[in-house]
Protein backbone atom coordinates (compact mmCIF):
# COMPACT_ATOMS: atom_id res chain seq x y z
CA UNK A 1 0.00 0.00 0.00
CA UNK A 2 1.21 3.49 -0.87
CA UNK A 3 4.21 1.80 -2.28
CA UNK A 4 6.01 4.55 -4.14
CA UNK A 5 5.61 7.32 -1.62
CA UNK A 6 6.53 5.71 1.59
CA UNK A 7 9.18 3.18 0.82
CA UNK A 8 12.89 3.52 0.79
CA UNK A 9 13.04 6.77 2.69
CA UNK A 10 16.04 5.59 4.69
CA UNK A 11 18.35 5.83 1.68
CA UNK A 12 19.72 8.99 0.08
CA UNK A 13 16.86 9.18 -2.37
CA UNK A 14 13.10 9.20 -2.09
CA UNK A 15 10.70 7.87 -4.71
CA UNK A 16 8.18 10.46 -5.82
CA UNK A 17 5.69 10.23 -8.68
CA UNK A 18 7.42 11.31 -11.88
CA UNK A 19 6.26 14.52 -13.57
CA UNK A 20 4.19 13.87 -16.64
CA UNK A 21 2.51 15.95 -19.32
CA UNK A 22 -0.26 13.44 -20.06
CA UNK A 23 -2.79 14.79 -17.57
CA UNK A 24 -2.61 18.30 -19.01
CA UNK A 25 -2.91 16.94 -22.53
CA UNK A 26 -5.93 14.95 -21.53
CA UNK A 27 -7.45 17.95 -19.75
CA UNK A 28 -6.93 20.10 -22.82
CA UNK A 29 -8.47 17.39 -24.97
CA UNK A 30 -11.54 17.10 -22.74
CA UNK A 31 -12.03 20.85 -22.84
CA UNK A 32 -11.69 20.97 -26.63
CA UNK A 33 -14.06 18.05 -27.03
CA UNK A 34 -16.72 20.05 -25.22
CA UNK A 35 -15.75 23.36 -26.81
CA UNK A 36 -16.58 21.83 -30.18
CA UNK A 37 -20.24 21.98 -29.18
CA UNK A 38 -20.13 25.77 -29.26
CA UNK A 39 -17.65 26.24 -32.06
CA UNK A 40 -16.96 23.62 -34.65
CA UNK A 41 -17.15 19.86 -34.83
CA UNK A 42 -13.53 19.68 -35.98
CA UNK A 43 -12.44 21.05 -32.63
CA UNK A 44 -14.36 18.29 -30.86
CA UNK A 45 -12.60 15.74 -33.01
CA UNK A 46 -9.21 17.19 -32.19
CA UNK A 47 -10.18 17.23 -28.52
CA UNK A 48 -11.22 13.60 -28.54
CA UNK A 49 -7.97 12.56 -30.20
CA UNK A 50 -5.97 14.54 -27.65
CA UNK A 51 -7.98 13.18 -24.72
CA UNK A 52 -7.55 9.62 -25.93
CA UNK A 53 -3.82 9.97 -26.42
CA UNK A 54 -3.62 11.62 -23.00
CA UNK A 55 -5.50 8.73 -21.47
CA UNK A 56 -3.25 6.15 -23.11
CA UNK A 57 -0.11 8.00 -22.08
CA UNK A 58 -1.42 8.32 -18.55
CA UNK A 59 -2.27 4.63 -18.52
CA UNK A 60 1.26 3.73 -19.50
CA UNK A 61 2.54 5.88 -16.67
CA UNK A 62 0.77 3.85 -14.01
CA UNK A 63 0.71 0.37 -15.53
CA UNK A 64 2.15 -2.04 -14.84
CA UNK A 65 4.12 0.06 -12.33
CA UNK A 66 3.73 3.68 -11.39
CA UNK A 67 6.52 5.81 -12.82
CA UNK A 68 8.61 7.61 -10.28
CA UNK A 69 11.70 9.67 -10.00
CA UNK A 70 14.31 9.58 -7.29
CA UNK A 71 14.79 12.78 -5.36
CA UNK A 72 18.07 13.03 -3.45
CA UNK A 73 17.73 13.75 0.23
CA UNK A 74 20.11 16.04 2.00
CA UNK A 75 19.79 15.65 5.72
CA UNK A 76 19.67 18.84 7.71
CA UNK A 77 18.70 19.38 11.28
CA UNK A 78 15.53 21.31 11.87
CA UNK A 79 15.20 22.70 15.31
CA UNK A 80 11.72 22.85 16.69
CA UNK A 81 11.69 25.55 19.27
CA UNK A 82 9.38 28.08 20.80
CA UNK A 83 9.70 31.58 22.12
CA UNK A 84 7.36 30.73 24.95
CA UNK A 85 8.94 27.79 26.70
CA UNK A 86 6.73 27.88 29.77
CA UNK A 87 3.04 27.17 30.04
CA UNK A 88 0.77 28.88 32.52
CA UNK A 89 -1.63 26.80 34.53
CA UNK A 90 -4.98 27.74 35.87
CA UNK A 91 -4.33 28.04 39.57
CA UNK A 92 -7.03 26.56 41.70
CA UNK A 93 -6.88 27.85 45.24
CA UNK A 94 -7.41 25.06 47.68
CA UNK A 95 -9.52 26.97 50.18
CA UNK A 96 -11.94 28.24 47.57
CA UNK A 97 -15.49 28.13 48.88
CA UNK A 98 -14.84 25.01 50.90
CA UNK A 99 -17.85 25.66 53.11
CA UNK A 100 -20.39 25.01 50.35
CA UNK A 101 -21.84 21.54 49.87
CA UNK A 102 -19.75 19.30 47.71
CA UNK A 103 -22.44 17.32 46.02
CA UNK A 104 -24.60 17.99 42.99
CA UNK A 105 -26.79 16.22 40.46
CA UNK A 106 -25.72 14.56 37.21
CA UNK A 107 -26.53 16.17 33.87
CA UNK A 108 -29.03 13.48 32.95
CA UNK A 109 -31.16 14.35 35.95
CA UNK A 110 -32.18 17.52 34.13
CA UNK A 111 -33.66 15.53 31.26
CA UNK A 112 -35.54 13.27 33.65
CA UNK A 113 -36.81 16.32 35.46
CA UNK A 114 -37.87 17.88 32.17
CA UNK A 115 -39.87 14.80 31.22
CA UNK A 116 -41.52 14.52 34.62
CA UNK A 117 -42.32 18.22 34.74
CA UNK A 118 -43.70 18.11 31.21
CA UNK A 119 -46.10 15.37 32.20
CA UNK A 120 -46.98 17.06 35.48
CA UNK A 121 -47.95 20.37 33.88
CA UNK A 122 -50.60 18.73 31.71
CA UNK A 123 -53.20 18.22 34.51
CA UNK A 124 -53.35 21.88 35.60
CA UNK A 125 -53.63 22.98 31.98
CA UNK A 126 -56.41 20.48 31.26
CA UNK A 127 -58.09 21.44 34.52
CA UNK A 128 -58.06 25.05 33.40
CA UNK A 129 -59.66 24.05 30.12
CA UNK A 130 -62.39 22.12 31.89
CA UNK A 131 -63.12 24.83 34.43
CA UNK A 132 -62.92 27.83 32.16
CA UNK A 133 -64.18 26.50 28.83
CA UNK A 134 -65.56 23.00 29.57
CA UNK A 135 -63.20 21.49 27.04
CA UNK A 136 -59.92 19.67 27.46
CA UNK A 137 -58.95 20.70 23.92
CA UNK A 138 -58.96 24.38 24.70
CA UNK A 139 -55.40 24.63 26.10
CA UNK A 140 -54.17 22.06 23.56
CA UNK A 141 -55.42 24.15 20.67
CA UNK A 142 -54.02 27.32 22.14
CA UNK A 143 -50.56 25.77 22.12
CA UNK A 144 -50.91 24.00 18.79
CA UNK A 145 -52.79 26.76 17.02
CA UNK A 146 -49.70 27.92 15.18
CA UNK A 147 -49.64 24.73 13.17
CA UNK A 148 -53.30 24.56 12.24
CA UNK A 149 -53.87 25.90 8.76
CA UNK A 150 -56.25 28.80 8.20
CA UNK A 151 -56.20 29.69 11.88
CA UNK A 152 -57.18 33.33 11.80
CA UNK A 153 -59.32 35.01 14.44
CA UNK A 154 -60.71 31.75 15.81
CA UNK A 155 -63.84 31.82 17.93
CA UNK A 156 -63.79 30.36 21.42
CA UNK A 157 -65.88 27.43 20.19
CA UNK A 158 -63.29 26.80 17.50
CA UNK A 159 -60.56 26.60 20.06
CA UNK A 160 -62.59 24.33 22.31
CA UNK A 161 -63.25 21.81 19.52
CA UNK A 162 -61.00 18.90 18.67
CA UNK A 163 -58.49 19.38 15.82
CA UNK A 164 -56.08 16.56 15.21
CA UNK A 165 -53.45 18.92 13.73
CA UNK A 166 -53.71 21.05 16.84
CA UNK A 167 -53.14 18.05 19.11
CA UNK A 168 -50.22 16.85 17.05
CA UNK A 169 -48.51 20.22 16.92
CA UNK A 170 -49.18 20.84 20.60
CA UNK A 171 -47.62 17.51 21.57
CA UNK A 172 -44.53 18.18 19.46
CA UNK A 173 -44.05 21.71 20.80
CA UNK A 174 -44.65 20.62 24.38
CA UNK A 175 -42.28 17.65 24.20
CA UNK A 176 -39.47 19.56 22.51
CA UNK A 177 -39.65 22.53 24.82
CA UNK A 178 -39.81 20.46 28.01
CA UNK A 179 -36.89 18.27 26.94
CA UNK A 180 -34.78 21.26 25.94
CA UNK A 181 -35.47 23.19 29.10
CA UNK A 182 -34.70 20.07 31.12
CA UNK A 183 -31.47 19.55 29.22
CA UNK A 184 -30.38 23.14 29.70
CA UNK A 185 -31.21 22.86 33.36
CA UNK A 186 -29.16 19.68 33.70
CA UNK A 187 -26.20 21.17 31.84
CA UNK A 188 -26.02 24.27 33.97
CA UNK A 189 -26.85 22.61 37.25
CA UNK A 190 -23.31 21.62 38.19
CA UNK A 191 -22.18 25.20 37.54
CA UNK A 192 -24.75 26.88 39.74
CA UNK A 193 -25.41 26.76 43.44
CA UNK A 194 -27.88 24.18 44.60
CA UNK A 195 -31.55 24.67 45.59
CA UNK A 196 -32.95 23.40 42.27
CA UNK A 197 -36.47 23.60 43.64
CA UNK A 198 -36.27 27.29 44.45
CA UNK A 199 -34.44 28.11 41.23
CA UNK A 200 -36.27 25.88 38.79
CA UNK A 201 -39.59 25.70 40.58
CA UNK A 202 -40.32 29.33 41.35
CA UNK A 203 -37.75 31.71 39.90
CA UNK A 204 -37.34 30.30 36.38
CA UNK A 205 -41.09 29.90 35.71
CA UNK A 206 -41.77 33.44 36.87
CA UNK A 207 -39.02 34.84 34.64
CA UNK A 208 -40.14 32.66 31.74
CA UNK A 209 -43.77 33.69 32.12
CA UNK A 210 -42.75 37.34 32.21
CA UNK A 211 -40.71 36.92 29.03
CA UNK A 212 -43.59 35.18 27.28
CA UNK A 213 -46.08 37.75 28.49
CA UNK A 214 -44.14 40.46 26.77
CA UNK A 215 -43.46 38.64 23.50
CA UNK A 216 -46.56 36.48 23.07
CA UNK A 217 -48.34 39.20 21.11
CA UNK A 218 -45.96 38.55 18.24
CA UNK A 219 -45.21 34.88 18.75
CA UNK A 220 -48.82 33.85 18.86
CA UNK A 221 -51.50 36.54 19.17
CA UNK A 222 -54.37 34.01 19.36
CA UNK A 223 -52.76 32.49 22.38
CA UNK A 224 -52.11 35.96 23.75
CA UNK A 225 -55.77 36.94 23.46
CA UNK A 226 -57.16 33.80 25.03
CA UNK A 227 -54.54 33.06 27.61
CA UNK A 228 -55.24 33.17 31.33
CA UNK A 229 -51.90 34.21 32.70
CA UNK A 230 -52.67 33.06 36.24
CA UNK A 231 -53.32 29.52 35.10
CA UNK A 232 -50.35 29.71 32.78
CA UNK A 233 -48.11 30.59 35.69
CA UNK A 234 -49.55 27.73 37.73
CA UNK A 235 -48.73 25.28 34.96
CA UNK A 236 -45.23 26.63 34.63
CA UNK A 237 -44.60 26.48 38.36
CA UNK A 238 -45.93 22.92 38.40
CA UNK A 239 -43.37 22.08 35.77
CA UNK A 240 -40.63 23.72 37.75
CA UNK A 241 -41.59 22.16 41.05
CA UNK A 242 -41.94 18.64 39.68
CA UNK A 243 -38.78 18.95 37.63
CA UNK A 244 -36.94 20.25 40.68
CA UNK A 245 -38.36 17.50 42.88
CA UNK A 246 -37.30 14.81 40.42
CA UNK A 247 -33.84 16.30 40.14
CA UNK A 248 -33.54 16.57 43.88
CA UNK A 249 -34.30 12.89 44.26
CA UNK A 250 -31.63 11.75 41.86
CA UNK A 251 -28.54 10.31 43.43
CA UNK A 252 -25.94 12.98 43.80
CA UNK A 253 -22.46 12.91 42.41
CA UNK A 254 -19.38 14.59 43.72
CA UNK A 255 -17.94 17.40 41.64
CA UNK A 256 -19.06 20.18 43.53
CA UNK A 257 -19.13 23.56 45.00
CA UNK A 258 -15.83 23.48 46.81
CA UNK A 259 -14.30 23.91 43.38
CA UNK A 260 -14.02 27.24 41.60
CA UNK A 261 -16.47 28.17 38.86
CA UNK A 262 -14.12 27.20 36.07
CA UNK A 263 -14.06 23.61 37.30
CA UNK A 264 -17.78 23.48 37.83
CA UNK A 265 -18.11 24.49 34.15
CA UNK A 266 -16.41 21.24 33.29
CA UNK A 267 -13.48 23.01 31.65
CA UNK A 268 -10.83 20.55 30.53
CA UNK A 269 -7.26 21.70 30.98
CA UNK A 270 -4.11 19.93 32.10
CA UNK A 271 -3.78 21.46 35.53
CA UNK A 272 -7.39 20.97 36.44
CA UNK A 273 -7.42 17.40 35.26
CA UNK A 274 -4.70 16.54 37.67
CA UNK A 275 -6.57 18.33 40.40
CA UNK A 276 -9.73 16.45 39.61
CA UNK A 277 -7.93 13.12 39.47
CA UNK A 278 -6.38 13.73 42.83
CA UNK A 279 -9.77 14.77 44.16
CA UNK A 280 -11.33 11.50 43.11
CA UNK A 281 -8.43 9.58 44.56
CA UNK A 282 -8.93 11.28 47.88
CA UNK A 283 -12.58 10.50 47.65
CA UNK A 284 -11.86 6.83 47.09
CA UNK A 285 -9.55 6.76 50.04
CA UNK A 286 -12.07 8.44 52.27
CA UNK A 287 -14.60 5.80 51.39
Amino acid sequence: MNEEQHSGSHSETIHLPAPTAWPIIMAFGVMLAFAGMVTNFGISLLGIVLALSGAIGWFRQVLPHEAHEDIPVVVENIIITTTRPEVARIIVPEDDRAHLPVETYPVLSGIKGGIAGGIAMIPPAILYGLIAQHSIWYPVNLLGGAGVANWRNPSTADIAAFHWQGVLVAIVIHAITCLLVGLLYGAMLPMLPRRPILLGGILAPVLWTGLLHSTMGVVNPELDQHIAWGWFLISQVTFGLVAGWVVAHQSRIRTAQSLPFIMRMGIETPGLVRERESATENEDESR
Binding site: V87, A88, M265, T269
Partner: peptide
Protein backbone atom coordinates in the same frame (compact mmCIF):
# COMPACT_ATOMS: atom_id res chain seq x y z
CA UNK B 1 6.29 35.32 27.76
CA UNK B 2 4.55 32.21 28.95
CA UNK B 3 1.97 30.23 27.01
CA UNK B 4 -1.44 30.80 28.54
CA UNK B 5 -3.17 27.94 30.29
CA UNK B 6 -4.36 25.38 27.75
CA UNK B 7 -8.07 24.65 27.85
CA UNK B 8 -9.41 21.86 25.71
CA UNK B 9 -13.15 22.21 26.10
CA UNK B 10 -16.08 21.47 28.31
CA UNK B 11 -19.03 19.26 27.52
CA UNK B 12 -21.31 21.14 29.87
CA UNK B 13 -20.56 24.50 28.32
CA UNK B 14 -20.99 23.08 24.81
CA UNK B 15 -24.32 21.64 25.84
CA UNK B 16 -25.49 24.92 27.33
CA UNK B 17 -24.64 26.96 24.25
CA UNK B 18 -26.26 24.38 22.03
CA UNK B 19 -29.55 24.28 23.90
CA UNK B 20 -30.02 28.04 24.17
CA UNK B 21 -29.86 28.58 20.38
CA UNK B 22 -32.20 25.63 19.92
CA UNK B 23 -34.74 27.28 22.20
Amino acid sequence: NREPAQIYGSNQVELAWTVIPVL
